[in-house]
């Protein structure tokens, strides 16, 4: 649906986006993850022709944007980062203007406002809206005319938890209708929750692209075993450190956290039993997106 190939853009000699390649398949939700300043927004602007790349190309639905700007952009819904509208127009007038530009019938726009909880303020000027309301209007705007491809730059930024829920629901609904979704975020939980596949960008380069599970596997991230035991955890640490296949033992919140090969799980439990330590509870945690992210972007840099 969306193919980016060799995309490069420099600002004052600094490479904001560096030979970026990624591909979004039809019908999927693709999470574009990266720390702030990694080049997410610059990439999205180039995808839409808002910024001109130094090199590389973008194809949407198998065609170049330049070939048929009207036809291709007509089928895209876009939510820019820090969206802004015209303060002198009401919410409904705003949607009407964009619907007209997209050549979409004006009916259904009030319902669209309702779907993001803005029905009551349809006739209020956007200039009087809070930041969150503007963002919601942005989401409604992106949905005009049931686009085939949604491109959303940080769709939940500036929203409280309730509104975040609303936006995620709208994204899922659109995807269920067959809409391909490409969204950027620096919030790992959000990407994990919504995305079928993830692309991770760091310093302008795509450093990983796959499903969350596959990313964990390919990076050889080991599952974590979390155990609650009847003995002081310190004592158990000593027992487990010698067990074959265990790479790391830690204490978190009074529980043991063991990182080990999947095959070593039974040996861990056996070793504890042999030392006379009772296991009250245990569960396995799959490698998290956070680990993947920290691994591929360099763990030293802070991530929210």
């Amino acid at each position: 649906m969306l193919e980016v190939d060799g995309l490069t853009k420099s600002y004052d000699g600094l490479r904001a986006v560096d030979d970026l390649r990624l591909s979004v398949r039809r019908g999927e939700v693709y999470g574009f993850l990266g720390p702030n300043g990694a080049g997410k927004t610059t990439t999205i602007k180039m995808v839409l022709g808002l910024t001109h790349p130094d090199a590389g190309r973008v194809r949407i639905g198998g065609r170049d944007l330049a070939e048929d700007a009207h036809g291709i952009k007509r089928r895209i819904g876009f939510l820019p980062e820090r969206i802004a509208f015209y303060n002198n127009l009401t919410a409904l007038q705003t949607l009407r203007f964009y619907a007209e530009l997209k050549g979409v019938p004006r009916n259904g726009l009030v319902d669209l406002l309702g779907s993001v909880g803005l029905r009551e303020v349809a006739d209020r000027r956007v200039g009087t809206f809070s930041k969150g309301m503007v963002q919601l209007l942005g989401v409604a705007q992106a949905m005009i005319g049931d686009p085939e491809l949604l491109i959303l730059d940080e769709p939940t930024s500036g929203l409280d938890p309730n509104w975040t829920r609303t936006v995620k629901d709208r994204i899922r609904e659109a995807n269920a209708r067959g809409c391909t979704v490409f969204f950027s975020s620096h919030i790992l939980g959000e990407v994990h929750e919504l995305a079928d596949r993830v692309g991770i960008i760091d310093r302008g380069r795509l450093v990983a692209e796959d499903t969350v599970a596959n990313l964990g596997r390919s990076l050889d991230l080991k599952p974590r075993l979390r155990l609650a035991v009847d003995a002081p955890p310190n004592a158990a640490v000593g027992v487990l450190e010698g067990v074959e296949g265990v790479t790391h033992v830690d204490i978190e919140g009074g529980e043991l956290v063991v990182i080990c090969d999947p095959a070593a799980k039974a040996r861990v439990l056996g070793a504890l039993a042999a030392a006379g330590i009772q296991v009250r509870d245990f569960r396995t945690e799959e490698p998290s997106l956070e680990e993947v992210f920290l691994r591929v972007t360099g763990a030293r840099r802070s991530v929210r």
Binding site: A69, K73, R74, P80, I83, A84, L101, K102, Q141
Partner: peptide, 8 residues
Amino acid sequence: LLLLAMPV
């Protein structure tokens, strides 16, 4: 940004 992302 949004205006130029429209089909124009």
